[in-house]
Each structure stands twice: as structure tokens, then as C-alpha cells.
């Protein structure tokens, strides 16, 4: 079984890779983890992870500038229904549109838009640090307690068009989507790779997920 972590030059690639390697080494049937941007390797992967930090437009452009990368993701995820996880901007990219530094078209895999967090002065932006989440019944949160803390760092958030696609929320100060899922596609706004034991649980659950 292969798990592909998409390498498009994202700053958190290393952290994501290390965290997945760490959790994977505890599985009885570990995956072969590859860090790649090769369309062939992506299409032969049984699970796909898309990390992402930085601006939405920059991440999107970096992905589209790698020949065949986006097309291979669409084949694997939309056609072959390979389980997919996006992290932070990797999750926001699933939206239709983002308004971060202009208007950018996203993958359009989960309906919704990415907009700036609106907050009074005492709520600093970025929303940075550990915040508690409330989640609905989903494999990704198996073994997690309601109100567990996860590490967030973002200034924009995914406003889902359909509430059923939001599987976890946090508050800052208004409700913010913390995780999304639609069929075989999931994503987290928080960083599981930086969320200590709770984060490792999410990664474990994703590795075990059979949507």
C-alpha cells in the first residue's frame, strides 16, 4: 500500500512527512510513504495527503505549475475515489473560491468559499495556537474527546456551502470550520502534524480510514 504526500514546495512538508512516518511505523501493516509530485506515483497511491501553508493563490499556482499534478489528483481522488486528506491550505484548496489576496478559483471538490476571519482587536489574526474542537461522528475523530485541543494557524477559513461537509468546528470568536469531509475527501484546518498526541490520533485514523 502506498501513501503519497504531495510535494509542491510547501513549508510544512517536512513536518507532515515526519509525523506520518512516525504514526505509520506503529501500524501492523505500514504504508510505503512517498513524498512526490510525480503524476504516475500519485495515480498508484492508495492514499493521498496534500499539505499546505502560505497563501492560497501561491499554493494553487505551485500545484498547477507542476505538469500533470492537478490532473493526476483529479483522476485519483474524484474518479478512483482514493482517500484524500488536505491539511490547512491543502484543505482550503478543496473549496470553489478563495478571497485571500484577490479572488482565486480552488479545486471545487467541496462546495464553499475561503474567507477572512472577522474578529475584534483582542482576537489576534492569524488565529494561532491550540484551540478546542467539536466534531460530529466520523472515523477521523475515533478515540478523540470532544473539546480536545488542536494546533491552528490561519487567517482565512473554509465556509462550507453545505453544513454536512463540516465535520468539526472551533470558535474564534465565531464558529470556524475545523475539518471537512465529502465521501473519500477529508481535510483539516488545524495541523495534525503539530497537534501532539491528538494530532497523531487523527493521522492514525486517516491511515485506517476506509471510506
Amino acid at each position: 500500500m502506498n501513501l503519497a504526500i504531495i510535494n509542491f514546495g510547501s513549508g510544512n512538508l517536512h513536518s507532515v512527512h515526519k509525523a506520518f512516518e512516525n504514526v505509520n511505523s506503529e501500524l501492523s501493516n505500514p504504508y510505503n510513504i512517498v513524498v512526490t509530485n510525480d503524476p504516475k506515483e500519485i495515480q498508484s497511491a492508495d492514499k493521498i495527503v496534500l499539505p499546505g501553508v502560505g497563501a492560497f493563490g501561491d499554493c494553487k499556482n505551485a500545484i498547477f505549475n507542476i505538469e500533470g499534478l492537478h490532473a493526476s489528483l483529479e483522476v485519483s481522488v474524484l474518479k478512483n475515489k482514493v482517500p484524500f486528506m488536505g491539511i490547512c491550505v491543502g484543505m482550503q484548496l478543496l473549496a470553489d473560491l478563495s478571497y485571500e489576496f484577490g479572488t482565486h478559483v480552488g479545486f471545487g471538490w467541496i462546495p464553499g468559499e475561503v474567507t477572512r476571519i472577522v474578529s475584534p482587536q483582542e482576537y489576534k489574526i492569524p488565529h494561532m495556537g491550540w484551540n478546542e474542537i467539536r466534531f460530529s461522528d466520523h472515523k477521523l475523530f475515533d478515540g478523540c474527546e470532544q473539546g480536545s485541543d488542536f494546533y491552528f494557524v490561519h487567517s482565512f477559513y473554509f465556509q462550507n456551502q453545505k453544513s454536512e461537509h463540516s465535520i468539526a468546528t472551533t470558535k474564534y470568536p465565531d464558529q470556524i470550520t475545523a475539518a471537512v469531509c465529502k465521501e473519500n475527501i477529508c481535510g483539516t484546518q488545524f495541523h495534525p502534524e503539530k497537534s501532539h498526541i491528538n494530532g497523531k490520533r487523527i493521522i492514525y485514523n486517516f491511515l485506517e480510514w476506509r471510506p
Binding site: G11, V53, G54, A55, V89, P126, M128, S155
Partner: peptide, 8 residues
């Protein structure tokens, strides 16, 4: 910030 993201 532009290259690596503000969060970095």
C-alpha cells in the same frame, strides 16, 4: 512572508 506564509 510571501514566500513561506505569514504563519512561518
Amino acid at each position: 512572508a510571501n514566500k513561506y506564509g505569514s504563519s512561518t
